[in-house]
Design a protein around this nucleic acid. Sequence first.
DNA 1: CGACTACTATGACCGCTGTCATAGTCACAG
DNA 2: CTGTGACTATGACAGCGGTCATAGTAGTCG
Lengths: 198, 198
Amino acid sequence: MAVSERGPRERMVFSAAQLIRRDGVASTGMREVAAHAEAPRGSLQHYFPDGKEQLVNEAVGWAGRYAGKRVARFLAALPEPTPSGLFAEMVRQWSDEYEAAGFAGGCPVAAATVDCAESTASTREAASAAFSTWNGSVARALVDMGVPKGRAEALATLMISTLEGAILVARAERDVRALTTVSRELGPLLDAAVTEVG
Amino acid sequence: MAVSERGPRERMVFSAAQLIRRDGVASTGMREVAAHAEAPRGSLQHYFPDGKEQLVNEAVGWAGRYAGKRVARFLAALPEPTPSGLFAEMVRQWSDEYEAAGFAGGCPVAAATVDCAESTASTREAASAAFSTWNGSVARALVDMGVPKGRAEALATLMISTLEGAILVARAERDVRALTTVSRELGPLLDAAVTEVG
DNA sequence: CGACTACTATGACCGCTGTCATAGTCACAG
DNA sequence: CTGTGACTATGACAGCGGTCATAGTAGTCG
């Protein structure tokens, strides 16, 4: 974790995302974020004058953009891109992390949704935007593989929903079983969407 | 919400589940639970001597058993039980609630996992047990429909993961789109598991 | 009656939270 | 030098969190 790179502001956003994904929004303190980012406490009110809400929203936005960009990298890593291959990569990112580093963290967007959907409108909107960004990336990738546009949007939603749920179950069970299972079971359905046209 | 029925202890567990699913574990106060259950504050330490942790764990356990029992009721409501029909009912429970009462609440087990998986071991175990109970119910139903046992377990995990994720996305977007989408897209795959054998 | 248990009722405590106020440092412009 | 902006550094504050201590009531058993 190259925390020392980049400016203190970005470090704090990044640290916030990390801590939120581990402990949830409510249990993550501002002081804790500053300490984790090795940033001065006073910088919090300087860079984030709207307080915790602003910091959390930026962390969620960052996570959404990160997930979107990952899709492109997954595609590049695949010898020949297929929907099931993409989904397997998306899932593998998580199972790899869990097996290598333990089940400490989940998805920060999910955490923000659970903790803030009803209490903090702006954060709910940030989470919605994050899912939308991510969904767009995945759908675009599917279209490039030959899936019709409307169907691609639907399958992207299915992939993201299933992945999010499997992350949740895996973390509760401290076992990657759910992740490997959904990857295996969903694969054929996804590939069928491209072959059925050709 | 027939809160006044049953004893105060059960009411508090029930109220805890309701508040947790709306605001998350960390943002739900003990005093708030007592007030919501119209129970005396002093009863908290009487019925739950191990404090919040115990109350949360019981709420999670209650939710798991509730979800398990719902499966049987869904089956009874179906003219002829099919995997896709069961999944559609499970999803519909949520989309109906969201359309009728708004997007205030998510799944309490998901909330407990997000907020406590890393911080509170016993709650993580309770969540794991809840998922296991639920998974068992769904898998058993699939077996009764003619799905081979091993496959039934896997499909149950897929159904639950997908549903949990779709709940999350729907709540963030304040739109049942994700729910209806996954129900439609996953249906054929689920039914294929029973017909492919016969 | 007394005793004992189940449950209720409050008040106090400490720790932590997000936020604000104030003052300080530092680099650089005029 | 003065000043001006960006950033840092603390201290204080009010509010709320879960928990403990203590005392009270109600009902029941012996």
